[in-house]
Design a protein around this nucleic acid. Structure first.
Lengths: 259, 259
DNA sequence: GTCTATATCTGGATAGAC
DNA sequence: GTCTATCCAGATATAGAC
């Protein structure tokens, strides 16, 4: 078993977002592989019986990835711990050395994803770039993250309603945070007269909806043979058009009270 | 109990889409209330023990609406038939006079929704209107349907992966049908030089993603106090801008192989 | 047509051997 | 740290009274 002793909280490399590419993003954030399982261990070792890092990370990887596979296929509730035991090759008793309960397993997945998402969103919010470049960095960055942590996002989206209300609210808050980062970009661009938009609030809502498609509609994009860069490009184009277009007077837009 | 003896397959009133409004749409399609429960009965009476229409429709309404409430709150798998029995006030034995099994209940919901969706989509595909008006009719029509049958769509979206593969494929086919209706509108408009678009396939994909938001992000739109018309308007504006905008040469769009 | 009572089984969870 | 064996609550589904 190979052991990676990277820091759990790796600091982003300066290569991103100056160079916008999946490889640079991967390297900057380390959102997959050993560092992730070490983070999971760090965040939840107090609730685990296992104390050895190396043993734990290997099994956590197995347990989490199998949970993603089974529950993203047929649903978390429909996945029994006996299924999980069989597919991981870890006995029922063994599983309970890593998780306190089935529900807690879902909770941990959500909270680890939130941890990483806050980290990346916090960075994407910073803007020493012109509005257009910043917008591009946000859209490509979120798409790359959605691609790399695809099973996490899909799981979170589909299973969040099974969690306690407090966690549901945290998930909604994070979506609103992502939305506000886009909104701030739009309004900054409007102030600088780079962007024009009648309803930036609504555009931010739509943009989030579009970005989430990348992990929700895997089957469709696979058929289309569309990769993450192509997807992000088309979202970027789409949103940019909404920000450059002049006011279209032959159809009226009702007033919208944004939150 | 009031009994509505409307035909199960009500023909659309001529008032829509010439007059685009929720009320006209509601009246044209009858996607709620007694006609719907009569349709459910018609479509599945051979699998039910109950033969009396009036008794059946009242209980079906109760069972289905309660199923929506419980499973859209915590998930269909997490909802037990004991929950359903308690909340409907119908005993366990009583429930089984209406459904053959729990899984079948989900199947019926999906198949009834597909029935109505095929019906409405088939009508929206017809176009004796100019491209812009036709686009507006499609976007508003789908939003109205998503609004009226909101619990059905939400259930279908979240629970489809728990169904047999054959039903999953039917759901995907219907999404692709909705997508192709938009694509046909785009290409017709491009032919008539009303629309301009580099990548109409991708725009159709994005448009579907946007429209689905209306039933997926209820919590957000409620906070924003946004109604269906306002939502549809903003989607319409957004898509129109993508169709009118000139080619943006300072950012390149990778080639996309569309299915 | 609806109910109560019950059969049957599966699921989550734990105790204790190794 | 992992496994086997087991407990038991709760799930689907059915039989048969009314």
């Amino acid at each position: 078993m190979e052991v990676n002793q990277n820091n759990v909280e790796s600091t982003p490399s300066p290569r991103w977002p100056n160079e916008i590419s999946m490889d640079a993003f991967r390297e900057a954030w380390q959102l997959e592989g050993t560092p992730v399982w070490e983070t999971v261990f760090e965040m939840h070792k107090d609730k685990m019986q296992i104390k050895n890092v190396n043993v734990a990370t290997a099994n956590l990887e197995n347990i989490f990835n199998t949970t993603f596979r089974l529950s993203n296929e047929k649903g978390f509730q429909a996945m029994s711990l006996r299924d999980l035991s069989r597919e991981t090759g870890i006995s029922m008793g063994g599983l309970y050395a890593y998780i306190h309960s089935k529900d807690e397993l879902a909770s941990v997945i959500e909270s680890v994803l939130r941890h990483y998402l806050r980290m990346v969103l916090g960075s994407l919010a910073k803007h020493d770039l012109d509005p257009v470049s910043h917008l591009k960095a946000i859209i490509f960055g979120e798409t790359y993250m959605n691609e790399i942590m695809n099973p996490w996002f899909y799981f979170s989206y589909m299973e969040v309603k099974g969690l306690p209300r407090s966690q549901q609210e945290k998930a909604m808050d994070l979506e609103l945070l992502a939305q506000s980062i886009l909104l701030d970009n739009f309004t900054a661009g409007m102030k600088q007269q780079v962007f024009q938009c009648d309803n930036p609030d609504m555009l931010a809502v739509h943009s989030i909806g579009l970005l989430q498609q990348w992990y929700l509609k895997r089957w469709k994009f696979k058929r289309m043979q569309l990769n993450a860069d192509q997807f992000a490009s088309s979202v970027f184009e789409f949103v940019l058009k909404a920000l450059n277009g002049h006011h279209n007077s032959n159809s009226k837009q009702p007033g919208i009270a944004a939150g």
